Simulated assay, not measured.
Amino acid sequence: MTTLADKSLLSGGDNKPPMLEKHLYDSWKSRMELYMMNRPHGRMILASVEKGPLVWPSITEDGVTRLKEYVELTPAEAIQADCDIKAIKTHSQGPTN
């Protein structure tokens, strides 16, 4: 049986995303999912990867429609926007030792 400590090690317990090796994609994918799930708001980060980032909300003022600024987002939208950035950062870090 896998313990929580084992999962932490498998998921990049050293605070780095796991390295991708071509012949071990399925293992890497599982470890990457565990790595993201172990982060604050992990489910939202993983959802950002699987379903895409937040569709930035817009508002209409005086007949003009514009995108909301970050400070105008609801607390939930702001958390999701932050998780989108974390998801992008995790993937863009690439292989690290």
Score class of each variant (00 low, 15 high):
1 M>R: 11
3 T>N: 15
4 L>N: 05
4 L>W: 05
4 L>Y: 04
8 S>C: 15
8 S>M: 15
8 S>R: 12
9 L>R: 13
9 L>G: 12
11 S>R: 10
12 G>P: 01
12 G>I: 01
13 G>E: 11
13 G>H: 13
13 G>C: 12
14 D>T: 05
17 P>M: 09
17 P>N: 12
20 L>M: 11
21 E>C: 07
21 E>T: 04
22 K>Q: 13
22 K>S: 14
22 K>R: 14
22 K>F: 12
25 Y>A: 10
25 Y>F: 13
25 Y>W: 12
26 D>H: 08
27 S>G: 00
27 S>W: 13
28 W>K: 09
31 R>L: 03
31 R>N: 10
32 M>H: 03
32 M>G: 04
36 M>W: 00
38 N>T: 09
39 R>E: 02
39 R>M: 06
40 P>Q: 03
41 H>F: 09
42 G>V: 04
45 I>H: 02
47 A>K: 02
47 A>P: 01
47 A>R: 02
47 A>L: 02
47 A>G: 03
48 S>R: 04
50 E>I: 14
50 E>H: 14
50 E>N: 14
50 E>S: 13
51 K>E: 07
52 G>F: 07
55 V>F: 15
55 V>K: 15
57 P>W: 15
57 P>A: 08
58 S>I: 03
58 S>W: 09
59 I>Q: 07
59 I>H: 02
60 T>F: 02
60 T>K: 09
61 E>L: 10
61 E>H: 07
63 G>E: 01
63 G>T: 02
63 G>K: 03
64 V>M: 10
66 R>S: 11
67 L>V: 04
67 L>I: 05
70 Y>P: 00
71 V>Q: 05
71 V>W: 02
73 L>F: 08
73 L>C: 08
73 L>V: 06
75 P>R: 05
75 P>Y: 05
76 A>C: 06
77 E>D: 03
77 E>L: 01
82 D>K: 00
83 C>P: 02
83 C>T: 02
84 D>N: 14
84 D>H: 09
84 D>R: 08
84 D>V: 12
85 I>Q: 07
87 A>I: 04
87 A>Y: 02
87 A>C: 06
88 I>A: 14
88 I>S: 07
89 K>M: 13
90 T>E: 03
92 S>W: 10
92 S>L: 15
92 S>I: 14
93 Q>C: 05
94 G>D: 07
94 G>K: 04
95 P>S: 15
96 T>R: 12
97 N>W: 12
